[in-house]
Design a protein around this nucleic acid. Sequence first.
DNA 1: TACAGTTACGGACCGCGTAAGCATA
DNA 2: TATGCTTACGCGGTCCGTAACTGTA
Lengths: 324, 324
Amino acid sequence: MKLQQLRYLAAVAQNGLNITAAAEKLHTSQPAVSKQLKLLEDELGFNIFVRSGRTLTKITPAGQKVIERALHILREVYNIKNISADLKDEDRGSLSIGTTHTQARYVLPTVIQQFRAKYPNVDLHLHQGTSEQIAEMAALDHIDFAIATGSHEQFRKYVLLPCYQWYRRIVVPAGHPLALIKKPTLKQVAQYPIVTYVFSFTGPSSLQQIFSKAGLSPNVALTARDADVIKTYVRLGFGVGIVADVAVDPKEDRDLVAIDASHLFPIHTTWIGFSRDGVLRRYMYDFMQLLAPHLNKRLIDRAGNMQSQEEVDALFAEIELPIR
Amino acid sequence: MKLQQLRYLAAVAQNGLNITAAAEKLHTSQPAVSKQLKLLEDELGFNIFVRSGRTLTKITPAGQKVIERALHILREVYNIKNISADLKDEDRGSLSIGTTHTQARYVLPTVIQQFRAKYPNVDLHLHQGTSEQIAEMAALDHIDFAIATGSHEQFRKYVLLPCYQWYRRIVVPAGHPLALIKKPTLKQVAQYPIVTYVFSFTGPSSLQQIFSKAGLSPNVALTARDADVIKTYVRLGFGVGIVADVAVDPKEDRDLVAIDASHLFPIHTTWIGFSRDGVLRRYMYDFMQLLAPHLNKRLIDRAGNMQSQEEVDALFAEIELPIR
DNA sequence: TACAGTTACGGACCGCGTAAGCATA
DNA sequence: TATGCTTACGCGGTCCGTAACTGTA
């Protein structure tokens, strides 16, 4: 068994069982891949793929297991190379981040600006998506970091470190009846159509539940996937917006009235996560600290060596998080 | 980077940084290992080992990380080969078990007898040791299974499945004053010198603590590492033995009086553990079920896929364990 | 006939073993 | 001087690319 064979195997598995396509991605010839695959299957003594005629059509059950192990191996090889790269040239490399709209739009720009100034030779890749999509990227090892709020469950392979907390704000156009009220009640808010995030309505501690607990049934006029859309519709007089605190810009949004809603809705915690199996480059530590100053190398390493997220949570229980 | 190089690296690391010794174990020449090591270090761009003159003296910090990753890779390669072996010839292979004296001497013989009858072509290796030694074997991947009682903490990499429960017994020579008492009290037992396991005296719920909780300070005449030694000294009139229930054989020990002590000391649970990272061969499943009939493949797989021991414990909380 | 994978073959490279060289205790 | 690692060199095997072949839509 050779590492090369495992690489070829992984490429074939990840390119729709198409050997030709895999060979192209690997910058080698198609017969080379074909042959090594066959040699690997010969050595193992069983077929990894089901063939109908000459084309690969399916993965056998045992093949599936082998592929999983192979991906694990390749990930470790990558880790070893990362250890090496970090020593050779610690300021050069790449950093892929999966994150949600709110973070990408309102929080990360300043962080990334600082980061790029410090590490001009690090290739930055930002992938925006829903938390499900980010979880998918994480599972496939396509990203180094995930930055999101809530939803710990989908990130089993990850260590999640809390970064900062934030409240929601209510935004209304100037002149709206609520604009004059400093501390509105849930009941007052519920009198108007509501415009907010899609995700705020699923799961526990959702807006839905908060209103219904108070015996109210909110009239949701629109659910959007990002704050910009929400603010746009608020401007159009569609309803009352409920957005993340950070999503309100004092300058750009000076035509809107932003009302503190920390007394109405619970606090949220944004975290940054990385694979428990991964090796962190120096600039990755630095990125985390730029995002959240309390995340120093010592603390990150302690958390990274923990077996379960519960332990990590316990570690951070004693640390006070900044509020944005 | 080649798998071969990682194998060589691991061998050198595990043979006291002696390249010659490593080469011998690998059935290859010393220059071959030397060269591949150097090639690997060249590729990585840093030294894995510290050399004084030409001999290797230490492992560099980065080298240590690389070695850990390499061992992980080799473990996965082994797993892939196990998947293969299981399909090719599922009745042939090897099974290494680390266990304590009590299990090896009193419980496993019948299990192993049945196992060997079913799988005559599986090489069985039994390694007896203290729980620390077994934990060490587990950490180094030298065993497939660990079977022991208590001490979950040292087996972080393992999934531990409870097998059966047992009580302690008090053994005295015929004619001893306690021999006539059906249900002795702690106070009565404490009147005589005590002969028991070394390990029963450390940690929480130890004998020491049980006695001191009752306001008694036992006179420990002898601590042994196995029940046979304990019984020998009991026969010599050295004191009152406290041993595992299973360690008393009605036939062989008919000269001793064994008194039920379930009302004095808490119940113990013996578990079998295997690496969370490992692949289980078919005969391994069968071995576990021979040891504890409730451990069927379905249940083992469910437990094996769990991330933490807490989840496994929760799974087994509902299952009634046999008492031996 | 277009497409995808296999087989065949020559060349480059690589890893091994033998043998000799070199540094340290 | 013994031990242990490195260097040198030739052989055999391996892997790749090109090209021709084969089976399927």
